[in-house]
Write a protein that binds this DNA or RNA. Structure first.
Lengths: 360, 360
DNA sequence: ACGAATCGGGAAAGCGCATTCCCTCTGTTT
DNA sequence: AAACAGAGGGAATGCGCTTTCCCGATTCGT
């Protein structure tokens, strides 16, 4: 990658590199009209493009925002990514993408890579875990983030704080009220439901999943309902599918013994899992909501045309990405550090046909 | 973003920066064991992270791959992005993301930004257009790409070449056989179908859409079928929805006049549009495939659980992203330039329930 | 055993740009 | 009219790293 340099432009325009630099990037000092014009023309005719690496080196700031997701093809992350991208454009920055598959070790790698590139800020969208096997990885990730922040980097994490990260200057968390919303969902569902609830959760220790499970149970309790059984599975479509197969067998067994057996209401901790579970039930000849109700979480856009329409909790994913990105932007001096960073994320319980009790 | 520098590491280890550089990055010259160890320890204790910007400046190569998409939240692009990301990891590079909304002007901006960052290569996933209004933008984009390539950059574009781009060193196109596959789809659909076909296409001038429309018509012709009417609409879900509303009205009118009117088979040029159209039909009380057949294109993963299962053409999107990214990798010397770059992309017609003629 | 080839290390010159400092030239003040 | 600010331009330095180039110390060949 060679290209024409500022020096060449300056030479062509017959001025010093310093002057050329001043006219081509809004410096505090503004050269004279005629000279500016000459430089601009020279730059144009040479097709000059400033070398951002060199600029970054000189100014020690890269104009880069690092985004860490599990999997960019997952619509949940894709939606957040869109928000991040959008906010990045506002800040006239570019986004560097890292997909990690979910392990804290890879996330640590990604943070290090971003730090190496001197990214101005980092947004971590992947959900945190506190499984024993991730403990060491989490510690390393926390250490890496610590270092990054100490060096002036800013980071925002979506959902839960990174385990073990000490509250640092420049470390923000965009809280997502998973627990509360799951509780509300449970309450609303329990209102018109007598049968049992079953929760299809992600692996134990995944905060996002655990919060939603806990919240849902609390909601049930508030509604005077007995707690739901919890099935653990992978946090993706096939996890939902497998759990769905189990439940299908159970449902069929129950209705075989007693045709009037009370229906089951399934809560999958995210939409993608819910869809997987629904597919499993269907493949076993069961119908929703006739034979079982099902609800998800996230309200993934691509899934809204799914039938029966999925009851879920709408999360403003794009906004979440935007918020996280904005939180990393250095506050205008007078502003309180905390003030703007806590624009709360709110969700909305959205009941649709997949849990219509009327179909009982 | 300050951090410890190579010089500091060198000083701590009591060696010259040159030596430190040599041990910390695999150089051709390998310093002695003991010294290497000392340097490594020093680096470790200082938490040294090399400054990629400076490295890039010195080596004039950034380890960056630029990816241009219309919208990262669109599952089509998200799938390609996953492939790109994957291939980038293979090459130990990071991906810079730019979303443009589809206009060539913004794409040009993105290319310039990537060039400024000295990205080693650029993958353009957005589909090309030859609408009159885009003409100037296309020319500018082509010029920008030209310049980028002349400066040693490598670019791969998915689908169609950029209009007006002269075949340059380092310019690759990953051909997607849209036309042929659409033709095959048409042929297979026409085999069991007597009624009319209608195509829901994207805006006129969008190559991806036009190719699929043209191919489909050719396929119909080959099957001895009369050509399909073409409805133009936006290249997204709501475009499909709107066209779907029109068609719903038409279908209802036809069956009102003649209850035994032959069914319509709708081909939407991509899955997302097809889903939109299906939603529109459903909202008008029509059922698929009872009242109309519908087929899409792409076989978006997230949409596979949609019911009725959508007939479509499976495209290996992730592979396409991977292929495009690999195509930009400089060939090992002995290799023919063309040899590997033409690993053909193939798709597969996938008939599912949404076009089941048996339901007639 | 002596010059030649090599090995391991350091000094220094950039890579392309921003920026500080200095200088000259103008326009202004008393 | 002398002194002085200030504007506009250039020389030079440094950002952090890679990479020649150079040099003393080994090892090798015959």
């Amino acid at each position: 990658m060679a290209a024409s340099t500022l020096t060449e432009v300056a030479r062509l325009a017959g001025v010093s590199p310093a002057t050329a630099s001043r006219v081509l990037n809004g410096s505090a000092r503004t050269p004279g009209k005629d000279i500016a014009e000459r430089v601009r023309q020279a730059a144009d005719s040479l097709g000059y493009i400033p070398n951002a690496q060199a600029q970054g080196l000189a100014k020690s700031s890269s104009g880069l925002i690092g985004l860490i997701v599990h999997d960019i093809a997952d619509p949940y992350f894709a939606a957040i990514a869109r928000g991040v991208q959008d906010a990045a454009r506002e800040q006239r920055k570019m986004v560097l993408l890292a997909t990690t598959g979910g392990g804290p070790a890879e996330e640590k790698e990604a943070v290090a890579a971003f730090a190496a590139r001197r990214a101005d800020s980092i947004v971590i969208a992947g959900s945190r875990s506190c499984r024993a096997e991730d403990q060491e990885g989490n510690a390393q990730l926390a250490a890496e983030l610590d270092r990054y922040c100490r060096n002036g980097g800013r980071v925002a994490v979506v959902g839960h704080p990174v385990v073990g990260a000490t509250a640092l200057e420049g470390y923000h968390v965009v809280e997502v009220p998973n627990q509360e919303l799951a509780g509300r969902l449970a309450t609303e569902l329990a209102a018109g439901w007598d049968g049992d609830f079953v929760i299809i959760g992600g692996p134990d220790g995944l905060y996002t999943s655990d919060d939603r499970v806990r919240g849902f149970q609390e909601g049930l309790a508030r509604a005077g309902h007995r707690p739901a059984e919890v099935l653990r599975s992978a946090f993706n479509r096939s996890g939902g599918y497998e759990a769905g197969l189990q439940l299908a067998a159970r449902i069929k067994a129950a209705s075989a013994g007693n045709p009037a057996a009370p229906k089951l209401c399934i809560f999958a901790v995210n939409d993608v899992m819910a869809i997987g579970a629904a597919a499993a039930l269907r493949s076993e000849g069961l119908r929703i909501p006739r034979d079982a109700s099902i609800a998800g979480f996230d309200d993934i856009e691509t899934l809204r045309d799914f039938r029966p329409a999925l009851s879920t909790v709408r999360l403003p994913l794009e906004d979440i990405g935007r918020l996280a990105t904005r939180a990393t932007r250095p506050r205008p001096a007078g502003q309180d550090q905390e003030a703007a960073s806590d624009e709360a994320v709110t969700g909305e319980v959205t009941l649709r046909r997949s849990t219509e009790a009327a179909a009982v």
